[in-house]
Design a protein around this nucleic acid. Sequence first.
DNA 1: CGACTTTCTCCCGTGTGAGGACAAAGCTCC
DNA 2: GGAGCTTTGTCCTCACACGGGAGAAAGTCG
Lengths: 396, 396
Amino acid sequence: MRRMTARPANAHQARLLRLLRDHGPNSRAQLGDRIDLSRSKLAVEVDRLLETGLVVADGLAASRGGRRSHNVRLAPALRFLGIDIGATSVDVAVTNAELEVLGHLTQPMDVREGPVAVFEQALALAGKLKASGVAEGFDGAGIGVPGPVRFPEGVPVAPPIMPGWDGFPVREALSQELGCPVMVDNDVNLMAVGEQHAGVARTVRDFLFVKIGTGIGCGIVVGGEVYRGTTGSAGDIGHIQVEPDGRPCACGNRGCLEAYFGGASLARDAEAAAREGTSPELAARLAAAGTLGAPEVAAAAAAGDPVALDLIRTGGSRTGQVIAGLVSFFNPGLVVIGGGVTGLGHTLLAAIRTQVYRQSLPLATNNLPIVLGELGQAAGVTGAARLISDHLFSPA
Amino acid sequence: MRRMTARPANAHQARLLRLLRDHGPNSRAQLGDRIDLSRSKLAVEVDRLLETGLVVADGLAASRGGRRSHNVRLAPALRFLGIDIGATSVDVAVTNAELEVLGHLTQPMDVREGPVAVFEQALALAGKLKASGVAEGFDGAGIGVPGPVRFPEGVPVAPPIMPGWDGFPVREALSQELGCPVMVDNDVNLMAVGEQHAGVARTVRDFLFVKIGTGIGCGIVVGGEVYRGTTGSAGDIGHIQVEPDGRPCACGNRGCLEAYFGGASLARDAEAAAREGTSPELAARLAAAGTLGAPEVAAAAAAGDPVALDLIRTGGSRTGQVIAGLVSFFNPGLVVIGGGVTGLGHTLLAAIRTQVYRQSLPLATNNLPIVLGELGQAAGVTGAARLISDHLFSPA
DNA sequence: CGACTTTCTCCCGTGTGAGGACAAAGCTCC
DNA sequence: GGAGCTTTGTCCTCACACGGGAGAAAGTCG
């Protein structure tokens, strides 16, 4: 089918499209309640959107006590592609215009294989999704990469864990391949956006999303908008020092948070404990799985293994120490913990909470919820879809 | 004289007033270059502003090669009052509409004496300035207080160093006393705004202003706007932990930055060194002055006293450690160091820079200037005047 | 079946703002 | 000193966005 090329012609239309995206099909009258426009103006703009095909009629609405209203909705054929490139995996999902995930595929993959190989995989996954019938084409794509991005150009800059990506024109290249508009952002920022759109952060305007995956990063949302910093590296908290003259870190410094916690360190520490024989539980799982990761540590902890529990507690405590500092500085309304290590669950969360509530001042922590993200794997791809939809649903 | 009561009627007028404030007297034609309005529209809005009296004619402009233009400027009689309440002093200044300081008075004073006593002093200083002839009345006042503020209401909340101020209706009370609009903010935020308006931060949109005075705080500017956090306590970095299980701090925790550095700690450490005899230089100055503070330590350091130098270096290093974390997190375009301890000058700055450049990642520090503020004492009051002028020069 | 409510459409009046035409004022070069 | 060009200021007109009223259409409720 022919893909949509229309864009909202003015701010009102953009506003309407976003309302329809966030609240689903709606009658003109209901739209009128949510937007500050006269009925005549509203009708004109909706008609124009209908003409462009971005919006279609959707039957009659339930009566609110009088004449029944005609519903409108975003074109049901609209499809967004969300791509979340992690350090060790690629997630690809297809959403409709309301950003509901219609199909989602994951594949393990090392980001260090470089942009060409990774895109090949991502496009293959997108192709599979197409073949499965959830989409015939894409009207836009959002993509998250595990490193800093020069946002306006959509180009990774000096990404430490993904050499070979530096300066690669991700946006340009992907747009060419897919034949649709593309926006690029840091993967953690997109997870934050995802939780903001469809997860726990729906009602908060200023919050932090702390991702603990292979590395540790933080998405910063200020006034409902992602804050990216001057060079796009805001939220890079994995290399904040938690231990003066501590463990050496891959970045060249000592005592970084990531040297103590995060997927990579956790795996290393767990395997060391298994080998040294301090934890038979972990040793058994290492023998069984051949390698240890967050899931194995979580299972060992659930089984009551004290070493595994201790790993989680000290790691959570160190993370909490950093978050406590950020909370004092940033005074957010919510802190969301996400990423692969969330499987560690309540033990981790409790350790983080303890540390934050103890170290930060009361005024900042009084009404500060610290919670796990509720979207899990879908956070990144949802955020990616949201990113491109925000872009497309804004005045041209 | 009768004070101005007019306010801009729309966003265009507000925009024009701010242009005239920030760029001084200007011709209509030049205004047209800076604002995106047709000449006719511009003329109408300027005429309306002239009618209200907020703007007055100001002679002819130099020719730009054709017909000479008529200048306009903000009413020369407009006066803003800037009040900066520090932990140990009160600063009061009067500015014109272009925010140039016309008179500035300082008085030592302990903020713990409570709002009533402090306001009495501040109003007395304002009265003196009036008597000196720089103002006949005030069209608006901005005031900074050394603690968190619920900004919309202009009320301090749970300020740790100023008990007795909690919930005191500062804005309300001062507005009553002065008979003009008043806005209240945290003093560090206002210093940041001051440096943004007239100091080193004029061209940056995202920056941090770190004040090292009696305590240590941080003003956060995001996209040109002060970020205050969910409860108004953003930037409260004095109680970030720098030393696990370190020195006890007044806040109840251990190892806080303020327990190691800032005016209070510096004075304590310097006096201890003087008494213990490790530094004859400091001992001599203690004997002479009766007490030690940042100026004495600075003088001793300048005289080459190793103990004083060491105090500054370790303090700066600890501060740098915290700033390094903030830089990784926030990725600012500039870090400004201000407050009473800037007298410590280059030694302090060097210590901070060393630590930040060593600990933060290259991408965040590559083009990151770390500089001393250039407004000194005037930063707070300038920021206060800017605060209220922003408020008054915005659509009603 | 009638009274009331809600929704939708059409139409008109108003106000805003862009842009062109033209006059006024000043510069520059001959 | 004047011709020609540039810049500035003023006036006028045209297009259009927007709000709100009138009234028709479609439903609900008693």
